[in-house]
Computed example of a mutant assay.
Amino acid sequence: MSESQACRMPDILRTASGEERRVGVEIELSGLSYEELVKLAGKLLSGDAHAASRYVAELETDLGKFTIELDSDPIKDLDLQDERLPESVRELGGQAMDVIDAAAEKIVPLEIVSPPLPFSTLERIETLCNELRKAGAMGSREALYYAFGLQLNPELPDLEAPTLVRYLQAFAVLYEWLKGRHQVDISRKFTSYIEPWSSTYTDKLIEDDYAPDVEQLMRDYLKYNPTRNKALDLLPLFAHLDSRLLAEYVEDERIKSRPTLHYRLPDCDIDNPQWHFSTVWNDWVVLEQLANNAAELAELREAFRKSRKLSLRNLTQSWPDTCNQWLHDRGYVR
């Protein structure tokens, strides 16, 4: 597949209002200094960068405003020249900050955060990741303490309850398959922020007669999953739908309201020549296609329910393998 055709498109490209659907992209990486990354991203995205604060640069491009930052609030906010500190500490501030900065750039991920991007522009992100690799960017596999991710924030076609249910059901049945496809690095397996949904909740979600309204859908989810730390985080969406209801279960200032899902599962394996942004995106498109084919979603959901029961067959055949074969047989996976 040529680079110009790397990112597949789902069938549903527009929202209910007729606008092209958009997706936010967050890329965590290392291997480059903060200054190198700002300069290179500016060149690759044809943008003008300016410093917004310490270790935070804003890059104005024709696609909108990208943010490039060191993904650690304590480091970004650190000021050893603060007048409240002893004079002896402030005198050493410059030298100390140089040491802190050098260490932080080796351990703390740098992050590129895109604006909401029309689906049709995602080849620009494919090219960006490929060029960053060539420049020496490194991902999760480079060191045990790296746990870098590539996160997607896809806008939904609409916010009606039946649509939300189909997307959540599609993710539930595809979770183990997606996890295997992304080859989640051991450093991220040790973290808590890509956990699957509660098994009890998943059982409720995948039943054929599950047809809640939006309020009941939120309450069902939040009863069992009152945290941001899920492979598919619904809290930004819920903040957009009903912030007061969300606050009954979760209070976290990090939650940003937006009409999107927050897909946190994939590694950023950017230094691997076999890894591409499009490999992550195209697997998400499989979920998109399944979520918008009600009959086939029901078929795979039934197979998933059977796989969760104790039987000889389930002891000898894994669900990811069964799911993968089903997706191949029906043309979801090329």
Score class of each variant (00 low, 15 high):
Trp284His: 08
Pro320Tyr: 00
Leu144Lys: 12
Trp326Leu: 11
Trp326Lys: 02
Ala57Val: 00
Arg21Thr: 02
Gly149Met: 02
His240Cys: 12
Val173Thr: 07
Ser257Met: 05
Ala6Lys: 08
Arg21Ile: 04
Leu156Glu: 05
Glu195Phe: 09
Trp275Arg: 03
Glu69Lys: 06
Thr322Tyr: 07
Leu234Ala: 08
Arg264His: 04
Ile107Thr: 14
Leu312Ala: 15
Glu253Asn: 08
Gln317Glu: 15
Tyr332Ala: 06
Glu302Thr: 11
Leu312Ser: 14
Ser120Glu: 13
Ala147Pro: 00
Asn292Gln: 15
Ala143Glu: 12
Asn153Trp: 00
Asn324Arg: 08
Glu58Pro: 03
Lys39Asn: 09
Ala41Pro: 00
Gln95Asn: 14
Gly64His: 06
Asp329Trp: 14
Gly93Asn: 06
Asn314Ile: 06
Ser257His: 08
Glu288Pro: 02
Leu144Thr: 11
Asp101Trp: 05
Leu246Glu: 04
Cys129Ser: 13
Pro266Glu: 07
Leu245Lys: 01
Ala137Val: 08
Ile186Gln: 13
Glu142Thr: 13
Asp267Lys: 05
Thr200Pro: 05
Phe66Asp: 00
Pro115Gly: 07
Arg8Ile: 06
Arg313Asn: 15
Leu287Met: 15
Ser17Asn: 15
Ala298Gly: 08
Arg313Pro: 10
Leu164Tyr: 01
Ser33Pro: 06
Gly31Ile: 01
Met1Glu: 12
Arg166Asp: 10
Asp11Leu: 06
Arg313Ile: 15
Arg305Asp: 12
Leu205Trp: 01
Tyr263Pro: 03
Asn314His: 13
Ser243Glu: 10
Leu85Ile: 09
Gln151Ser: 14
Glu299Ala: 14
Lys189Ser: 15
Tyr167Lys: 03
Glu3Asn: 14
Ser4Val: 15
Pro320Phe: 00
Leu40Val: 09
His50Gln: 13
Ile68Pro: 01
Leu45Val: 04
Glu35Gly: 11
Leu122Ile: 05
Ser30Gly: 15
Leu178Asp: 00
Lys230Thr: 14
Asp213Ser: 10
Ala294Lys: 12
Asn272Phe: 11
Leu152Gly: 01
Tyr146His: 14
Arg330Gln: 15
Glu105Lys: 02
Val333Asp: 06
Tyr146Gly: 05
Ile112Cys: 00
Leu232Pro: 07
Leu122Ala: 07
Leu117Phe: 03
Ala239Pro: 08
Gly18Leu: 06
Pro74Tyr: 03
Trp284Met: 07
